[in-house]
């Protein structure tokens, strides 16, 4: 049997995070067997995401429009900004349904050895936001890793130097070395609640 197209699908699936050869084969066979419409639905969804989703102009979150759903929601408290490393973290915090402020996504954390310095992060737009809009508090919710901590300390210095905005750091309900996206809702909610101000 000539099945090079099936092999190609398996190869493509293997490139996805967390998918090994076995899983890729199982998924490929599954897709081959389901009705054509369902399989093509998946293909179209991928195509649509790639064509439509980009980064929000203001906060760096994933968005289909110029501004993301959170930034364009007028019921949100725009004077409270929660700074996170990845767009995944926005999802994790918003899922709790308790946080009513807005976000800023850095797309990473300071890691000089990996060539990620301040210029490689989505930092300048944040500083511009602080200049242009009335901001009361910035919550630094970067991961409790050495890189996340360094990023928080660095940001705290920059923001303090600018003007009197309250800067706080999420509490360590999340253990050192952990990643926000893996935290459960209770842990996250406690971490936000117990945030402390950085002087």
């Amino acid at each position: 049997m000539e099945a090079s197209s099936l092999n190609r699908l398996i190869e493509e699936l293997k490139r996805l995070p967390g998918i090994g050869t076995k899983t890729a084969q199982r998924l490929a066979f599954f897709l081959m067997k389901v009705p054509k419409e369902r399989a093509l639905g998946l293909a179209r969804a991928i195509e649509e995401v790639k064509e439509k989703v980009r980064f929000c102009r203001r906060c760096g979150n994933l968005s289909e429009n110029d501004l993301c759903g959170i930034c364009s929601d007028s019921r949100r408290d725009a004077a409270l900004i929660c700074v996170v490393q990845e767009a995944m973290d926005v999802l994790a915090i918003d899922r709790m349904g308790e946080y009513r402020g807005v976000f800023h996504v850095l797309h990473g954390a300071l890691s000089p050895i990996d060539n990620i310095g301040p210029d490689e992060l989505n930092l300048r737009p944040l500083m511009e936001r602080l200049e242009e809009t009335e901001v009361r508090e910035v919550i630094l919710a970067t991961n409790p890793t050495i890189e996340g901590e360094a990023t928080a300390m660095y940001l705290a210095r920059l923001i303090h130097a600018k003007r009197g905005i309250k800067v706080s750091r999420i509490a360590h309900g999340i253990p050192m070395g952990g990643h926000l996206e893996y935290a459960d809702e209770v842990t996250l909610s406690k971490a936000l609640e117990g945030r402390r101000e950085i002087q």
């Binding site: 890793t145 050495i146 990643h179 893996y182």
Partner: peptide, 15 residues
């Protein structure tokens, strides 16, 4: 190692 409840605990960190 990146899972929150990893068996390495949170300590497999630089330095």
């Amino acid at each position: 190692a990146r899972r929150l409840k990893s068996r390495f605990g949170p300590y497999l960190e630089t330095l």
